[in-house]
Write a protein that binds this DNA or RNA. Structure first.
Lengths: 217, 217, 217, 217
DNA sequence: TATGAATGAGCATTCATTCAT
DNA sequence: CATGAATGAATGCTCATTCAT
């Protein structure tokens, strides 16, 4: 409402033409990048809800109106922030188990990698959690990502079951979802909420729980 | 709470007399109750952030100003809402395992009870999740509650370990936390986000994973 | 976006609940009246387009936000202004000619009355013209009013034709519309645009043209 | 223009070099033409008030800044648009009556020509009406044009009066103004507002009214 | 000349909070 | 206690206009 702002002007609302077209100039690219970077800083500092567009433009040392050259809303910059950190966001997964692999070692490595990545991006993860609670698009994005990982992990579990070294009774997809959730939630507690676990203890314990849960060996 | 660079937003004195003396008359009690009930409805409908005090007073069929007779802020009504549903909030836990119990049956019963309670209060749980992402007090409350349950479950695990029927290698408290997190997160996915698990399948699978994880038997 | 103003909040847009409910207090009634009166003054001074809600609230010596207690938009206050001057707006019409009347005298009287009323409300008429050019609702209102008068005048013409003292060849409704338009347009030119006609000359000339056009006698 | 109490809104120096020297190259001429053409399209589509310079430059496939190479403001492009359609704008008039002409036939032909021209340029006329309500220059232009036609028609009337075939009692200039207004207003109603008159009926009726009004014959 | 990014004043609108009745 | 009108700071957003390239 956005009609929002000044009086509504357009009678035809072209669905808030998103995307705004990318910068056509080097200067434009710089400004856009400054905005995305400033947005990340402000979001991480103040949280998504409290973040004011004015704070973002101030942080980017850019005029208030310039924001709208590149983004149509707070949601949109947030999406751009996510995009810009996509590789950091990559959810490390339990790699596909290969016959030759030692399953325990693979699980441990995966968990360690996941937790390290989480710790590295703890602020971002907190942010993502906040936004998910409020923005349906982000929530959907997050679910989709989670499901993709669950599916991969499910495949690993199927492999192990096929090799006869994992409990054949558990539903691979449900188990993958649940165990991933367990690890993810512990990472959240530790790195976002500040639960006082030590990384190595976490890795050891979660790996053992995970392996036990699948009755590996 | 953001230590934003932006100007202070609230003009209210932080030392504001919170807790607002309780109603002294029957009429006052009724009004207060109407506000709490309306607040819950509005919060569940619109979410915490979107909820306007005006909506709450409207829903309660009470004048806007009357709100401040009983509460000093949105946070405060929310606390009152939580208070009013405290018993529903009681987090069913894995009951202390007693020698005579069949551990598996106990775990299954606990999980089923937990999931049923979660399903019954799904709206509230979603709400709690939203508010936690935004209000530090609620977040702290939630953590405290979670830790209490974890501690109880940890004790159960210690018992099982002492009886020699659970993996002695796992840290009881960490395991309790992680497994509780797993169940809780699956409940959230299912009843809040709408993941399409069936209750019985969930109970069965989570119970098996939990039992396996502790190498029970 | 309306969206509009701050970020869009409601997911359910109840079609901009117009009407806002009338004041329930004497004070409220006074404030509302002050706003309507201020709005009229500002509209007449600055024109509809240039009028700022801030100017209106300032003129009414009322806080900016109070505007929205009674109106949802500029259009809505404008409607209230029109309502408040409804009787002044009453378009004097050519009264139904009765057998005993002297048609010429009736026409002259009607035209004089119309022109006087127009002169009295010249600012308002200018305003109405401006808004009609921009707001479809007002345009529709104006047309409806015009058509009603045309219909009455048409009936007068039919009477005269029936009595054999008006040109039977002219379409009564079309003639009524056209001759009313002629008078109205001259009033606009004179009292709004400042064409230098003298009232009596106008009355005389228009009456003669009108009577001639119908070949009265 | 409002002598509003509000702060001055435009920062532009009123002594701004209007008229912007004409294009010096062929390319410049093309760009200017594209802007004028785009402006007309946008004005007719969105109305003068709603039209954004950005829409015009977009429609012209020209950069935003290029606008100011040729025009200093929206008013100025609008003037250029009017200029570019000047011949279409030519208000067909009641041609000077020549002794040999059949006055009725001349009037009918003039009215028909006028109405046809109006129909052809209905969008433009609507636009002109809108802008007149807001821009004093355009309003003045329109009045001047109207007066010129009135003067010509007045001369025709004088001729007819001199020939003894028109009512000598009517003021030629006032009558010319009033009858022109009548026709013009009916054209507006029909072609802009959508009153359901048929062209031929209009021509017939207006011609008869006009002729009657002057007591021709 | 053309480009398109940057600017920033200007304005509408929301809503928690106060307070006279 | 209840009422509901008044308040006004806070903020998002628009768009004419400038200017470096």
């Amino acid at each position: 409402m956005p009609s929002s702002g000044a009086a509504t002007r357009r009678t035809t609302d072209p669905a808030k033409d998103s995307a705004k077209h990318p910068p056509r100039t080097a200067r434009g690219a710089r400004t856009r990048a400054a905005l995305v970077s400033a947005a990340r800083a402000v979001f991480e500092r103040d949280g998504y809800i409290e973040a004011r567009l004015a704070d973002i433009t101030a942080e980017a040392k850019v005029a208030a109106g310039s924001f709208y050259t590149y983004f149509a809303s707070k949601e949109e910059v947030f999406a751009a922030v996510l995009e810009s950190v996509q590789e950091e966001m990559v959810h490390p997964q339990v790699r596909r188990m290969i016959d030759s692999d030692d399953p325990l070692a693979v699980i441990e490595a995966s968990n360690r990698a996941y937790l390290l990545a989480y710790r590295r991006n703890a602020k971002l993860m907190r942010l993502l959690d906040q936004v998910s609670a409020v923005d349906e698009n982000v929530q959907a994005l997050r679910r989709a990502r989670g499901q993709a990982f669950a599916e991969r992990n499910a495949q690993s579990i199927r492999d192990l079951q096929a090799r006869g070294i994992a409990d054949a009774e558990v539903d691979p997809y449900l188990a993958a979802t649940a165990l991933s959730a367990m690890v993810s939630r512990m990472a959240y507690g530790t790195f976002v909420l500040g639960d006082p676990w030590k990384l190595d203890d976490l890795v050891t314990a979660l790996t053992r729980l995970w392996a036990n849960a699948l009755r590996i060996n």
